[in-house]
Design a binder for these strands. Structure first.
Lengths: 340, 340
DNA sequence: ATTGGCAGTCAGGGTGTTCGAGTGCTGATG
DNA sequence: CATCAGCACTCGAACACCCTGACTGCCAAT
C-alpha cells in the first residue's frame, strides 16, 4: 500500500513532469516542495509508487515519470479543481458577445476551447431526435435533380440532392411539396418519417417512381441521426508538443482525421451530467490513440439534446486546467444554446 | 548558359532526389542513367547548374539538391506529362459512381485527391454570383430569433440566424416571408439584394425595426460571396514526410489551419483554364509556407462559376504526377458538377 | 519511520579517429 | 573543344571512448 505522503509525492511528480517534460528525481522534489523529510525518505516512497506501477523510470538511475495508471490516479483522486485564470475568463467573456447560427457557434466554441487549452478541441453536433420539422422545401436544380431542404424548428437545416431517372417538372414538384409539408409540418422527426410513407400514393401513377425516389431520400435524411459530425480545431497544437509522441505524430494526426474514430471514442466514454471524464493513454489503444489522452464533457443544445465536446492531447497534459476549461466551455455552450 | 545535357542532368537530379530524399552525386547519376559520358563530365555540367543556382550542395563535397529555382525550371520545362497510373484511374472511377449534394461531392473529392497524391488536398467552394434565388424561408426559432434560409437554384443553401430586439410573432414572419419571396424569387443574387431594400417599408410601422433587422441580415448574406470556404483532407500526410520540414511541422500545420491564408494564396495564384500551376517554396514565403509547394487548378461548377482546388506538400514532391492528379480531378469534378 | 552515507548505474555530451562519398582541378586525348 | 581519367582534398556520418552528473538502492545508525 502507498501512504498519504506517497500520494502527495505522486501529485508533485505529475505536476513537475507535466510542467517540465523532465523525469523528476527525489532531490528535485525536496528542493522544490517542502515535504519536511529528506530525499532518502522520498526515495522510499517512490519505490512504493513504482511497485504499484504508478510511476516508472525511463532508464536505470534517472528521475521518474508517471505511468498511465499514475495519471489515472492523479485525475481521479489528486487533481484539485483549479479555477480558471483571468485571461481564460475574459476569453470566454469576449466570445460570449457575438451570436450566430448553430454552425457558427460551434465553430467559435471549438476555436475557443482549443485556445484555452492549447490542445486539439472537438465539438460534436447535437442530435435532434426531439426536434420538429418546420418546413420542407423541394427545389428542382436540373430536370433530373431535386434538392430537398429540411428545416427544423431548432434552427438546423439539412439538405440533400436527389437524382431521379425520369425528369421531373415543376408541377409535380409543387404538388409533392404541398403534400409532404402537410404530412410533416410540426411533427417530430420520427413521426414525420412515418407520415411520409403514404405520400407517394397520392401522386399520379405516371410520376410514382420519381416521387417515391424523392420521398425516400427525404425519409432517409430524417432518420439519419445527425450526430455523426464534429468540428475540430487546433490540430497544429499536436505538432507543438511533437516530442511527446514517440516516433512520429503521423499515426495521431491520421487517427484524428478519421472522424468516425473520434465519434466512436466519444460514444464509448461514459460521463455523468456536468462532469468531465478522461480517457488516458493506453485506455485509447483500440482507437490508435495510445499516446494521447482525451477529456470529454456534455453540453445540452436547444432541444435539451445532449452532445459532447472535449479536447485531445498528449498524455503529458495539464489535466486540472484542461478539465476545468472543458467544464467551463461545456457549461457556457449549454447556456448559449439553451437560452430562449 | 546551361547545355541541353545540363538540363537533362537537372531533371534526373530532381527525380532521384524526390524519390530518395538523398543528395545525388555525379557517380550515382552515371550509374543509374545512361548518359554515355563519364562522371567527370557530369560534374562539369553540375558546376554550371550550380552557377545558375538551379542546384545546391547542402555541404561541401556532398551530392546536390535542387533549389526552389531548380524545381521551378523542372515544372516549367522539364516535367513530362505523366499519365495517371491504373490504380489512380480506378480510384477515380469508383469515386465517380456515387452522387450526393454539393457538400458531399466536395468532401469526397478532397479525400480522393488527397489519396491520389498523398498530400494535403484542398477544394474551394464555388461562388455563386450568377446563381438565382429559388426560395427564401423564414423560421421563428425562439420569439426573438429568426432563422433565414436562402435556397439557390444551383443547389446551394445558405442559412443565418437573426437576433431581434423585440419579439416577432408568426403573423409578421408570414407576412415578411411572402413579401420577401415576391421580391427575390427567381432573381440573381445581386438583383435580389437590391430588391429587398424596399420590403421593410411595406411592413407596419410598429414592426419596422425587427423587419429591417431581418431583411438586412438576409441582404448581407446574399451579397457575401460564399467563396470564403474550403474543405481540406490529408493533413496527416505532412507528418509522413516530417523530415522535409526543417525544425518542426508546427508552422506549416498552423498556417494551413488558418483557412484565410490558404484562400488568399489560392486567390493570388494565376492559372489559365484547364492548366495546373505551381507555387514553389519561397514563392509562398508571405504565407508562412516557404517550405511547401502548392499546386492548383480550376474547376467549373453548375453555374459555370469557377473555383479552385489543389494540393499542398513539401517542396520535395513528385510534381509530375501530382499535377496530373490535380488536373484529372479538376476535370472530373467539373464534369460531375456541370452535368445536366 | 527516518536518515545520512556510499556504491553502482547509465544517459548525455564532448573528443578524436576513421571511412567514404563526392567534389574541383589538371593535364591528356580524340 | 568537348570529354575524360586521375588525384588531392573536404567534410559529414559513424564509431569508440571517456568523463561527468544525476539518480537510485541499500544499509546501518538514530
Amino acid at each position: 500500500m502507498v501512504s498519504d505522503r506517497g500520494l502527495e509525492v505522486l501529485r508533485v511528480i505529475v505536476q513537475d513532469y507535466v510542467a517540465s517534460r523532465e523525469p523528476v528525481g527525489s532531490k528535485t522534489i525536496v528542493d522544490r516542495h517542502s515535504f519536511g523529510v529528506s530525499a532518502a525518505t522520498i526515495r522510499n516512497d517512490m519505490a512504493q509508487l513504482e511497485d504499484e506501477e504508478l510511476i516508472a523510470a525511463p532508464h536505470t538511475s534517472s528521475g521518474r515519470v508517471p505511468t498511465d495508471k499514475g495519471y489515472r490516479m492523479f485525475v481521479d483522486h489528486l487533481a484539485d479543481r483549479r479555477p480558471l485564470s483571468n485571461a481564460q475568463r475574459t476569453a470566454i467573456e469576449t466570445f460570449l458577445g457575438a451570436s450566430g447560427d448553430l454552425d457558427e457557434v460551434l465553430h467559435r466554441t471549438v476555436r475557443l476551447l482549443s485556445q484555452l487549452t492549447n490542445q486539439v478541441a472537438l465539438v460534436q453536433y447535437p442530435m435532434f431526435s426531439r426536434a420538429r420539422v418546420r418546413h420542407l422545401e423541394l427545389v428542382s436544380v436540373t430536370p433530373t435533380r431535386v434538392l430537398a431542404v429540411i428545416i427544423l424548428d431548432n434552427g438546423r437545416v439539412e439538405q440533400r440532392l436527389v437524382e431521379t431517372e425520369a425528369s421531373v417538372d415543376d408541377v409535380l414538384i409543387g404538388r409533392l411539396r404541398t403534400q409532404c409539408n402537410e404530412a410533416v409540418a410540426g411533427r417530430p422527426l420520427l413521426e414525420a418519417h412515418d407520415a411520409l410513407g403514404d405520400v407517394p400514393e397520392l401522386i399520379a401513377e405516371r410520376d410514382r417512381p420519381a416521387a417515391t425516389r424523392i420521398v425516400d431520400a427525404v425519409r432517409e435524411q430524417l432518420s439519419a441521426q445527425r450526430q455523426d459530425r464534429l468540428v475540430m480545431a487546433g490540430a497544429a497544437n499536436l505538432a507543438r508538443t511533437e516530442d511527446d509522441f514517440p516516433g512520429s505524430i503521423y499515426p495521431v494526426l491520421d487517427a484524428i482525421e478519421q472522424q468516425v474514430v473520434l465519434l466512436r471514442l466519444f460514444g464509448e466514454m461514459e460521463a455523468e451530467r456536468d462532469s468531465v471524464v478522461a480517457s488516458i493513454g493506453r485506455e485509447n489503444a483500440s482507437f490508435g490513440l495510445e499516446t494521447t489522452s482525451v477529456l470529454v464533457g456534455d453540453y445540452r443544445s436547444s432541444g435539451g439534446e445532449i452532445a459532447r465536446l472535449g479536447v485531445l492531447g498528449p498524455t503529458r497534459m495539464d489535466y486540472a486546467s484542461n478539465m476545468a476549461a472543458v467544464r467551463a466551455v461545456a457549461r457556457y455552450l449549454s447556456r448559449t444554446l439553451d437560452a430562449e
